[in-house]
């Protein structure tokens, strides 16, 4: 193809995208401002009043669901575009040669924006180590990447407000940073599987990241939305429906008796309960919504949520291919203790 022609068609495509995004953003903003009106309209259409229990529950559902879905679509698109700037190769280059401490903070932060799927955990892990990223710094990344992600943050923001979301972000990063530093201090390099040590002793090839156009980045954003929102929307609707449903039907302090602030064993129990459970941030939200709505302490619930997302049996089985059991156990133990402390501090502060 004629290169000038390609450039021209590439440019017209980009313009189409920019116009499309501007239109979509205006519709998004308009819809976001009409949420209450929409819920009121649905309720009146059904001939119900917000004074009744059913009416109030339905209003809650028809207000919250579009709100969370809108927020999620917007943020996931933006994250999909941002992620194209942070390929694992680029993150690795930024982390290699960093000292412990600074490296842990950077690794945990990059964990938020670097695309990550637990099926790629082992290649990523080895790729980091072979480029000279210290073991503890690699773990900071590996803990933060699944736990502190945009879906969890958007859902917490949409359902419980920005304070809870910000606390989750801050404490999630803190757990990832500190746990990585502890693992680094323990000098556990010899607990990597032998074949991994062999690779690390060898040479690493430079793999240069591909240069993407803006059109490709926008397409990646749309793909990200299709993938994430397409997967999680049933959980979100279930969560909101549950939240709306229990609104009036379960006693307000039902959970407080055994998941309240004063129950000392509630936090460890929540962490232990979270380990065998494997689901993404969206899957755990229905449970979180139900627990908080009924008087469970916030620290306990956040500890549960972090445990479900960060410590999962399937991910450990994947990591087992590269790590010896001692290192896996240390990883799980250190992270669990970190989450435990977060839960207690939270319950004590609030």
């Amino acid at each position: 193809m004629n290169p000038n022609l390609t450039a021209a068609s590439e440019r017209s495509k980009l313009i189409q995208w920019l116009v499309g995004i501007a239109v979509a953003a205006s519709i998004w903003l308009f819809a976001y401002n009409q949420l209450t009106a929409f819920a009121d309209w649905v309720i009146s259409l059904l001939g119900l009043s917000r004074q009744t229990r059913t009416g109030e529950a339905l209003h809650f559902f028809f207000y919250d669901s579009p709100k969370v879905v809108l927020l999620l679509t917007g943020i996931v698109f933006i994250m999909g575009v941002i992620q194209t700037f942070f390929s694992p190769e680029r993150t690795r280059a930024m982390l290699s040669g960093k000292r412990e401490g600074v490296g842990n903070v950077l690794a945990a932060s990059l964990g938020i924006v670097t695309p990550f799927c637990s099926c790629s955990a082992v290649p990523l892990f080895i790729g980091f180590l072979s480029a000279g990223v210290p073991l503890g710094v690699t773990f900071s990344f590996l803990i933060s990447a699944p736990m502190v992600n945009e879906v969890a943050l958007v859902l917490l923001f949409g359902m419980f407000g920005w304070k809870v979301a910000a606390l989750y972000l801050g404490l999630g990063l803190l757990v990832a940073i500190v746990a990585g530093m502890v693992i680094g201090k323990l000098k556990m390099e010899r607990f990597l599987e032998d074949w991994v040590q062999k690779i690390l002793g060898g040479q690493t090839a430079e793999h240069h990241g591909e240069q993407l156009t803006w059109v490709a980045r926008f397409e990646a954003g749309v793909d990200h939305v299709k993938e994430i929102v397409g997967k999680v929307w049933p959980y979100i609707l279930a969560g909101i429906a549950l939240g709306a449903g229990i609104h009036g039907y379960v006693p307000e302090d039902f959970m407080a008796s055994f998941m309240g602030k004063d129950v000392w064993w509630a936090v460890p129990a929540a962490v232990l309960l979270g380990v065998p459970m494997y689901t993404n941030a969206a899957g755990v939200i229905p449970i979180v919504e139900a627990l908080i709505g009924k008087g469970a302490a916030l620290g306990t619930v956040l500890a549960f949520m972090m445990s479900v997302i960060a410590l999962s049996a399937p991910e450990m089985i994947i990591l087992r291919k590269a790590l010896k059991p001692t290192l896996i156990a240390t990883f799980a133990g250190v992270v669990a203790i970190g989450i435990l402390l977060v839960g207690y501090v939270f319950n004590w502060l609030l």
């Binding site: 694992p88 690795r92 082992v122 290649p123 090839a205 793999h207 590269a322």
Partner: peptide, 25 residues
């Protein structure tokens, strides 16, 4: 996993044509 790592990719899926890594992740 060990065979995948021989290509030094950091995220899957990766596409390899005639032993050259074309894309990953």
């Amino acid at each position: 996993m060990q065979d995948i790592m021989a290509y030094q990719v950091m995220s899957t899926p990766a596409l390899v044509i005639n032993e050259v890594v074309k894309s990953s992740g």
